[in-house]
């Protein structure tokens, strides 16, 4: 069972679908109705590159209730090879080994459980290459 809120985001969370502006080429992730750069309303759907590098990161030691059992965990801002940027956890690694500039790859993982029923919610996390 999934919630409507979760269902709407599946193309982005599972398949990294973004909107590429047909006028100026800017990639919006998640897709938008108006290009923030040139205000065009014409987009084509593209899939983001799965590889990129870490621009900055933190190690969360005190987390929100929902993630409190997972601390310490790394959250990073990642620039993908196509120039798009996103926020994701960096997983399967020694948290002390992560650095600015480290190359990473996005993989499919469970992210959290939603609401009091604990619905499983999936998406992308990064691993070190």
């Amino acid at each position: 069972m999934i919630s409507p809120k979760y269902h709407r985001e599946i193309p982005q969370r599972y398949r990294l679908e973004a909107g590429k502006c047909k006028q100026c080429g800017t990639i919006s992730f998640p897709p938008r109705l108006i290009c923030p750069k040139c205000k065009s309303k014409n987009f084509e759907t593209v899939q983001l590159s799965r590889e990129g590098k870490i621009l900055t990161f933190t190690i969360i030691r005190v987390g929100p209730d929902k993630f409190s059992k997972e601390t310490p965990y790394v959250v990073a801002i990642i620039e993908l090879n196509d120039g798009a940027r996103l926020t994701a956890q960096v997983t399967d690694c020694d948290v002390n080994k992560v650095e600015i500039g480290t190359k990473v790859k996005l993989v499919f993982r469970k992210i959290q459980d939603e609401g009091k029923w604990g619905l499983h919610c999936y998406g992308y996390k990064a691993i070190l290459i």
């Binding site: 990161f57 987390g63 993630f67 926020t87």
Partner: peptide, 17 residues
């Protein structure tokens, strides 16, 4: 949907800055 969903907190956002 695109920051908090992944477990970031406010101290975390400013820590990244």
């Amino acid at each position: 949907e695109y920051e908090v969903y992944h477990g970031i907190t406010f101290p975390g956002l400013y820590a990244m800055m």
